[in-house]
Structure formats: structure tokens, C-alpha cells
Amino acid sequence: MNAREYEDGAGGRPDSLSLFDERDEADGLPEGGTEEAAAGRGRRRRRTRRVLIWTLATLLVLIGGGIGGIYWTAEHYASSVERIPGAFPSVPESAQPKPVPGAGLTFLLVGLDARSDVATTGGQAKAPAWKEGASRSDTMMLMHLSADRRSVSLVSIARDTWVPVPGHGMAKINAAYSWGGPPLMVDTVQKLTGIRIDHVAVIDWNGFKKLTDAVGGVDITIPQTIEAKGDAREWLKGTHHMSGDEALLYVRERHGLPNGDLDRTKRQQNFLRALMIQTMNAGTLGNPGRLTGLLQAVGDVVSVDDRLSNTDLYDLGWSLRGVRPDDVRFMNAPFGGFDSIGGQDVVKLDTAASATLWEAVRNDRMDEYFAQHRTTSDTLGESVR
């Protein structure tokens, strides 16, 4: 699926304003109008459009040294994002969930503690961010972008969630990545949820240190003091301005948290929310040094499937230009309890509640879902341990 497909669907193409669209708004005359009046309106539209185009071009020249420089910069940073070949399962189409036309895009985000790719040689592309048996995925999130690109929903699936892994029987969901990399991970999630995965992104938590430092750090509020336990540090109540190193400690820890991995996933979501707010802050976007550092760090943090071209990345970024932090919602997959199976501590899903959530994602009805479930403990609130 191409990132431009958000424009299709039952609701038609979202309203948009293009500075580069030379089509007239109407071919005919309004009732009671004259040809002279219509010609005047057409001249005003063209004049306004030319003013906007030249204003935009001037800003690009001042900011980036010319339109060619802007294009080169965008191409450079988009090309630096590593592509993962063969990220999708090779199972027959009939064995995969059917895509729902006009229902937005769904990404599978896989978080790792450390990248497993090898160094580049002679300018060649990096190896896939996976080696058989080398590591298990630390974090999994479904990120759904609504068809109108006005909202984003992220649903975390705890790494200890007990699920059927195709070809391996029941296991913790993070084992799928170790056994079969992105294709098996995608196949496992698709069969669990019935949601067609459009794209895959592998995220390196270590790399988030660079992102955090690139935006000047993030503010995280801890509602109550958490005592040190084992290797886990003490966290004092209050708002902390965290550097990259501190933020990494914050998202990795689970010892001392009442609900273990469930609280840990909420910490990760809370960090992403804080990073997003700081990134959208004018102090970051308006500071050339910080913005350049942010763009440079992205390529070190994220790898995406090879179905996403540079043009797709541009289009995707542009389509999300109106999204603000309040338009992004986070939650955990509905919790069904802890258990111990074969000596392993596992997390179980609430099957009925999960089915309702998966249906909402599949049919692009997450706005309705969050309106009905805004008080559930699975959703990310303002207070995160």
C-alpha cells in the first residue's frame, strides 16, 4: 500500500489547499454572474497564488540556501533511513487479513535494545536489522494513522503477551522476532489482531538518546517517588528535564513498577509523548542546529520496510503536517491478567475487549473508540509511574 492511499476511500479525498494547483475552482459561472466578474476573480486567484508561491520560495531560499538545497537535504535525510528488505510474510494473500479500503494506514513499530545490523561497506545498504536468534523485540506498537490524517493512535502490546506464533505454537510475542525477524513478527500480529499491517518500522531505543539530545532534552513528570530496587535507580516525585541517557534509563526500567512491563510500556509511551511535544516546540523547529541534529538522528534510530520510498516518506510527512500532540493517543492492548506458564511469567490479553479494539483499528474508528474508553486504565493518562 502506498502512503498516498489515504486520499482514497468512501469519504473521498480530504479537502486540501495546493499552492501549485493551476486548476480553476469552477468551470462555469455562478448564477447571476458575468464573464467580466469571473475573469476578475480568476486574475485575483492567480495573483494570490503567485504571491504565495514566491513567498514560499523566498522562505526556502533564506532557510535552506535555495530550493535545490532543500530538495537535496530532504533527499539526503530520507535516503539515510535504512530500508528492511523482505519485511512482510510470504504466506499466501488468502491467509492474510484483507485490507480495508479507505481505512488509513497501520504501522507495526518494533523496538529493540540495540540494532543488529552490520557496518556499511563501500556505501552499500546495511544488513537487515535482525539476525536469527540474536535478540527478541523489546517493544511492539501498532500505530494507526487515520484516513483523514487528523489523528494517530498507538497501541502497545507487552513483550510478554502470550500468543500463538505461526509455526511455533504458543509463546511470548517477542519470541516471534527472534525466531523469524520482521516477517514472522508481522504474521504473528496480523493473525492475533486481524489487522493488515501496511508498513514496518524498527526502532532502536539506544538511538533515542540522540533524538532526545537533539531536541534539547524532554520534560517527564513522575507523580510519586519510586524507590531504588536492585539495579533500578530511584526516581523522585516531580518534573525532570531528562537528557538522552536519563530518558533511556526511564524507558528501560521495569523493576519497582507495580505492573512491571505494563507500566514500562506506559513509560515508553509517556516518553514518546514528551519527545513529540518538544519536537513540535518552536524552539526546536525554529533552531537550525537542533533541527539538523534531529534529522540526522532519525536515520540512526529508525529502519523501515523497503515498500516505503523516499517520495512516500515525503508524502506521509506532509499529510501529517496538521497533527498536534493532542491528536495522538496512546494505550496498551486490553490487559487480561498475569499468569505463569511452563515456568514463564506471561501477560494475557482480555480477548473480548481486544476484539473491540482490533475492529476499531481495522475500520478506522479509533476516534469513536477513545471517546467510549477514555477512562479505561489501558489508556495513557497524565500521571505515569
Rank of each mutant, 00 (worst) to 15 (best):
residue 136 R to V: 00
residue 110 V to R: 02
residue 99 P to H: 10
residue 68 G to S: 14
residue 125 A to N: 08
residue 143 M to E: 07
residue 70 I to Y: 09
residue 118 V to P: 01
residue 70 I to W: 12
residue 78 A to H: 05
residue 138 D to Y: 05
residue 147 A to C: 09
residue 57 A to K: 05
residue 55 T to E: 14
residue 100 V to C: 04
residue 137 S to M: 04
residue 160 D to A: 15
residue 82 E to C: 01
residue 120 T to R: 07
residue 72 W to D: 15
residue 84 I to R: 02
residue 71 Y to V: 08
residue 83 R to Y: 03
residue 129 A to F: 01
residue 114 A to S: 15
residue 65 G to C: 12
residue 124 Q to Y: 08
residue 74 A to C: 09
residue 76 H to S: 12
residue 99 P to T: 02
residue 143 M to R: 06
residue 110 V to W: 00
residue 73 T to R: 09
residue 144 H to N: 04
residue 148 D to S: 04
residue 73 T to A: 15
residue 80 S to R: 14
residue 116 S to R: 11
residue 139 T to M: 06
residue 125 A to T: 01
residue 120 T to W: 03
residue 162 W to K: 09
residue 75 E to D: 12
residue 123 G to T: 04
residue 91 V to L: 05
residue 159 R to I: 02
residue 69 G to C: 07
residue 86 G to Y: 05
residue 91 V to W: 02
residue 72 W to T: 14
residue 163 V to I: 05
residue 130 W to E: 04
residue 159 R to A: 06
residue 75 E to H: 13
residue 102 G to Q: 06
residue 120 T to D: 12
residue 153 S to I: 02
residue 60 L to Y: 01
residue 79 S to T: 08
residue 79 S to E: 07
residue 107 F to A: 03
residue 156 S to R: 08
residue 133 G to H: 00
residue 148 D to G: 12
residue 99 P to M: 05
residue 57 A to C: 12
residue 105 L to E: 04
residue 135 S to P: 03
residue 155 V to P: 03
residue 81 V to S: 12
residue 126 K to D: 01
residue 132 E to Y: 00
residue 147 A to H: 05
residue 100 V to T: 09
residue 97 P to H: 10
residue 118 V to C: 03
residue 82 E to A: 08
residue 91 V to D: 13
residue 147 A to D: 05
